[in-house]
Design a protein around this nucleic acid. Structure first.
Lengths: 341, 341
DNA sequence: ATTAGCACTCACTTGCATCGAGTGCTAATA
DNA sequence: TATTAGCACTCGATGCAAGTGAGTGCTAAT
């Protein structure tokens, strides 16, 4: 446990460093009105904090810089539950305004968040687990190709192109659509394939010529492919941070962003609430110099997606955490009415 | 007009510089087996070429570097009509393989091109000018919202969410969809709004209650918004080029990529064929150090889209140009059957 | 017309001295 | 006993001078 004095100094160093990105020396702290101690005393305290591995030096005679452990302590113990700031009000305004499709709302929010924070926003989802089929359409484009359109109750529209099975009559095609709509509407879209088997197969056998070929085609069309999309916004913000003036680091950063599967792995499976990973706490080598703050947004018990802010370990934790808390709350409220009525 | 000797030296300097990114000195050229001249003679030729502004020095005693005018001369006069290389065969293979939606094909091609060249690929389009309406659907999600789905004959699917007009009966809604499908199918989607007015308005007046409100809503749904999408692929490639080791330049580059409207302006309105803009020939300040090679892909006389490769002025013009030529040809061939049958 | 030779230019590197912000330690002080 | 002042020390950053080398332009010889 830290003494009040130690805590004050740790906090001041981290706050200052977050603003300036320069190591903080004892002299600078001695000038801080809130700290009424001499530089020498402060040096002693700093030495203690360094022994506890909460601070580090960049070289033997440099000022102090927070260590990852220091940030961790700061996030866990120092940051007080936030108050509403003007940024939060701005975001609330944006979110409540309109009646857009979920995906667009999320995308917009990501942009707003990266503008407000000057960090990079990564959004996962929304996934459609829990969504049910509202309507299915098969539209013939020409003799060879057709397009299938699935609409969910959440308003998500998905379409797939496919080649028309050989030796299929148009009348069978139409019958097929009717059967599908009659039997599959209301089924969760994740399990449409199973539903096709249990609800539709026998009917097809009865009414459709060449039903086996048709069945296989429909099955492949209905196969649920995780449509998780990744939106990244404010990539360039990272370039304005002084710690990324090295081209190699920038290259690594952008390459990391291109690796979608890794990012999905990183963001998925986060529990409810705000989650902070600092530096090497992240599983991913490429972001060992970053901090990642994530939160899930959800409807009821279904997790719908994750939104994350990525910045240097020297991050404005206070601000970002309260922004994300607000976002998560807003989002969940916004989603509520969309399905209920 | 250049002498053979001047041409040989210009060409060699540009070829070497494209490979190494270092200024080329007279000594290095004198060692080139293809050039059987002393360093001093080469220096004289180089001085001549510099007078003609085809070469430049980075400082008074440096080797020579091609000027923009030099690249221009090289592109216009030196590059011979290309032969098929292995890359082109690879691309042909990828393009012919499958039966995907146009947008996906274009997106994939962009990725392949940026991999093959190590430059950044920017794709505009495909635009849907000339596409006609194949089917329209209105699907009610809940009491307040519905989604409209438009499908074109090219297989492009577009959807829009909208609020359901107040005081509208479900039966009217269904009637409406029937009328729209009866009257609007086959109309070019760019002019659906007009067609709505001329073909549908009177009918609505007759059959639909509250037709004025409905009309306005439908009109806004049908309003054609240029769905031109921009795909960028291989952004990180630029970071491997030695001329972009400066963070400011990288920042400028990425900021430029975020500015979609500017890019669309830059890429649109290019005539048929390959088009090379070198350095300041580009209208856009942010890419004054880049060369942009564009080509349009098209079906018949309708221009469908533009694909462009962006790299340093020190670009492998030969390779890029022949790749793009091939792409354009392939693409046009690929598109042909999609609509005809 | 071509080439060898030479003086010159200039970016780049290396070494060295200096500066200053910051530290740890010790002794004096409240 | 806790705090502070003072001092020697460390080390990155900055600036300068000298040296290096790749390259040039010019001139005179071939």
């Amino acid at each position: 446990m830290l003494t009040n004095r130690q805590l004050l100094i740790l906090q001041t160093i981290i706050d200052d460093f977050i603003q300036t990105a320069h190591p903080i020396g004892s002299r600078a702290l001695a000038n801080d009105k809130a700290i009424n101690l001499s530089a020498a005393t402060i040096r002693n305290v700093m030495a203690d904090l360094e022994d506890m591995e909460l601070l580090e030096k960049t070289h033997s005679s440099s000022g102090r810089v927070p260590s990852e452990k220091g940030y961790r302590y700061y996030v866990d113990n120092v940051i007080s539950p936030s108050i509403k700031e003007k940024e939060i009000l701005l975001m609330e305004h944006l979110l409540q305004d309109n009646l857009l499709e979920l995906e667009q709302v999320v995308q917009m929010s990501a942009e707003v968040l990266s503008q407000l924070t000057n960090y990079t926003t990564i959004v996962l989802g929304p996934n459609e687990i829990g969504a049910t089929l509202k309507q299915i359409q098969l539209i013939v484009l020409n003799q060879r190709t057709a397009v299938a359109i699935l609409v969910t109750d959440t308003g998500h529209v998905e379409h797939k192109h496919f080649t028309i099975p050989p030796n299929i009559k148009m009348s069978d095609f139409e019958k097929m659509v009717n059967i599908l709509n009659e039997r599959l509407i209301g089924h969760p879209i994740v399990s449409l394939s199973q539903a096709l088997q249990s609800e539709v197969y026998e009917l097809m056998k009865k009414h459709i010529h060449n039903y086996e070929v048709m069945y296989e085609y429909i099955k492949s069309v209905l196969k649920y492919e995780e449509p998780t999309k990744l939106y990244v916004s404010g990539e360039t913000n990272i370039l304005t941070q002084p710690e990324f003036k090295d081209v190699d680091k920038i290259y690594e950063f952008y390459t990391m962003l291109e690796n979608e599967t890794e990012i999905i792995k990183l963001l998925g499976n986060k529990h409810q609430g705000i989650h902070v990973s600092i530096g090497r706490e992240n599983k991913m080598e490429a972001i060992k110099d970053f901090s990642l703050i994530t939160t899930a947004y959800s409807l009821g018990n279904d997790q719908l997606g994750t939104i994350a802010l990525l910045g240097p370990t020297r991050m404005e934790y206070r601000k970002v955490i309260s922004l994300l808390q607000s976002f998560s709350k807003q989002m969940t409220e916004l989603l509520q009415p969309k399905r209920d009525d």
